[in-house]
Each structure stands twice: as C-alpha cells, then as structure tokens.
C-alpha cells in the first residue's frame, strides 16, 4: 500500500514536471487543419453534384479522392508533417485513417507481401475497424429492440 502511494506521488510529481502541448493552440490548429480538409471534401462533393452525379455516388467519389490524396501525401512524407502541426485535425478525417493504413504498408513492405504488408497493414487501423463495426452492430441491435418496443 505504501509503495502504491509512493508510486502515485511520483506519478503526480512527474506530471507537474513534464511540459505538455498548449491545449488551446493545439485545438485551434486542429480546427484549421480539419476545417481545410473538410472544406476540400465539400468542394469535391459540390463539384461532383454539379457534374450531375447523384448524392451517394458523389459521396463515394469524395471519399476516394481524399483517401488517394492522403496516401500520396503519406508516400511523399508530407502527411506526417501536416499532422505534426494540425494534430487531431489531420487524424480524425478519413485522410488520417488512410494514412494509418498506408504508413504500415510502406514500413513493413520489406518484411514481405504476406508477413509484412499482409499481417501488419492494419496494426494501427485494425482496432478502429474492429470496434467501429462492433459499435455499429451494438447500435443496430439497440435500434432493432427499440423498434420492436415501439420507441422508434
């Protein structure tokens, strides 16, 4: 018990001693970066719709173009620099997700197509995919229950 208290005391002390990123500044940068990426997405969407594509297809094109752009920027080592400045603003949009798949693919390529890229491409994105699917399953189940109960 005593040891635990000591550990906690040290942890708190270290927390005080350790510099952290300035939160408001980081939030502002994230807002700008995320905003620019989303604005780019919106303009692609608008352009597609203007060209006469329906809403679903336009959305598909928007995602694909953003993903492609992110993968190319990752390969050119530009995307990490954007994220270094923009933080969560670059990580949260679909471009961040694309980067988290492209980066391991590049890094582990040397370990082979199967054991390298195949096994490790989803090391970062894997949990997001798993729990994303799982969460939608849970929500779907609740929705189904709710429907039977007549709530929705």
């Amino acid at each position: 018990m005593d040891r635990k208290k000591q550990q906690e005391a040290y942890e708190n002390y270290v927390k005080k001693k350790t510099p952290v990123h300035n939160l408001p500044v980081n939030m502002a940068k994230a807002f700008i970066t995320g905003g620019i990426i989303c604005a780019a997405g919106q303009s692609i969407l608008n352009y597609c719709e203007k060209m006469g594509l329906n809403k679903d297809i336009s959305g598909g094109w928007t995602s694909m173009i953003l993903i492609l752009a992110s993968v190319i920027l990752t390969a050119l080592n530009i995307y990490p620099r954007i994220a270094k400045w923009g933080g969560a603003g670059a990580l949260v949009p679909i471009t961040g997700f694309a980067n988290s798949v492209a980066a391991p693919a590049i890094e582990f390529q040397k370990e082979g197509q199967v054991m390298g890229i195949g096994c490790k491409i989803f090391t970062i994105a894997g949990p997001v995919i798993l729990y994303g699917v799982f969460t939608s399953w849970v929500l779907g189940f609740l929705y189904w229950i709710g429907k039977i109960a007549g709530i929705f």
Partner: peptide, 17 residues
C-alpha cells in the same frame, strides 16, 4: 520507431516529453 512506436510515415504528434 518501427519496433517501439509507429511506422515512420504514420501521422501523429509526439508529446513534448
């Protein structure tokens, strides 16, 4: 980086520590 953290081209922010 590859062994202990992330692939080099993975976009993230390193803490100041």
């Amino acid at each position: 980086e590859k062994e202990f953290r992330f692939p080099l081209s993975y976009a993230n922010q390193r803490p100041l520590s």
